[in-house]
């Protein structure tokens, strides 16, 4: 669905990403993981043209993503960021339907789609007319997800979608999200720094460090066949609870 060929991105004179060559296959869930500053969010932004590469080509569905094509790509890709990125002046419903209304879609179809998405994400119907400030963190994240799914996109990008949630809500939402991903069979690219979360979702994991790919493969590959000592260290740094006997 997405391909990157020799892509490089420079920020303030320092290379932030690449050169990277990567395929993100359709219908699969790929998780980008790595320590902060490794370039995983930058990579996600490149996919929908929020940033442009200095070198190389990013392509979506076979066509390069350029400033001219970026808008049509964005209409086919849903994007969810930490805490939802919701517009505080709009109700949950208005946030979800903003783009559809702008495109002049049929009102009834919009209303039906919102009901469908609320059911899918288990969002309470009475919350639809509240503003983001009146919703809980988990609810905001569900609204963010509904907004990303509104136009029934081919792909879904999520940038640390669960980072700001407390552990119980997070665990619930992880389970629901995985169900949704499996039910929808969309191309999913998810960014996280949590290995547990990565392995929970991923068909494929891509581990990044300093803007380059250190290893890509199944979660099992990272555990059992680390490409270099950094992978081992990264995997071991994720510790479970230490319970005294």
């Amino acid at each position: 669905m997405f391909t990157l060929r020799d892509v490089q991105k420079v920020y303030a004179g320092r290379p932030a990403l690449g050169p990277i060559t990567l395929d993100l296959p359709a219908g699969r869930t790929t998780v980008l993981i790595g320590p902060s500053g490794c370039g995983k969010s930058t990579l996600l932004r490149l996919l929908i043209g929020l940033a442009g590469p200095h070198k190389g080509v990013v392509a979506f569905d076979g066509a390069p993503v350029t400033p001219e094509t970026a808008r049509s790509v964005r209409l086919r890709v849903g994007y969810v960021i930490q805490d939802g990125g919701l517009f505080p002046h709009l109700t949950a419903r208005a946030n979800v339907t903003l783009m559809a209304r702008h495109l002049g879609r049929d009102r009834e179809a919009i209303a039906a789609r919102v009901d469908e998405l609320a059911a899918l994400t288990r969002f309470p119907a009475d919350g639809l007319d509240r503003r983001p400030g009146e919703l809980s963190g988990g609810q905001r994240q569900r609204v963010g997800l509904m907004r990303a799914l509104m136009l029934d996109p081919d792909a879904l990008l999520l940038d640390e979608p669960l980072g700001a949630l407390d552990p119980l809500v997070r665990a619930d939402l992880q389970a629901e999200l995985r169900e949704i991903f499996r039910a929808l069979r969309k191309t999913v690219v998810l960014v996280t720094h949590d290995l547990g979360e990565a392995t929970y979702f991923a068909d494929r994991v891509v581990l990044l460090r300093d803007g380059r790919i250190v290893q890509e493969g199944s979660p099992g590959d990272l555990w059992h066949r680390p490409a270099d000592p950094f992978v081992t260290r990264f995997v071991q740094a994720q510790r479970g609870p230490e319970v005294p006997a």
Partner: peptide, 20 residues
């Protein structure tokens, strides 16, 4: 982040100005 969020939805610049 809100500006970017609007861009990511695919809203054109004038609509971002007007609606967000």
């Amino acid at each position: 982040s809100l500006r970017e969020s609007a861009e990511a939805l695919g809203l054109p610049p004038l609509a971002i100005l007007r609606r967000v």
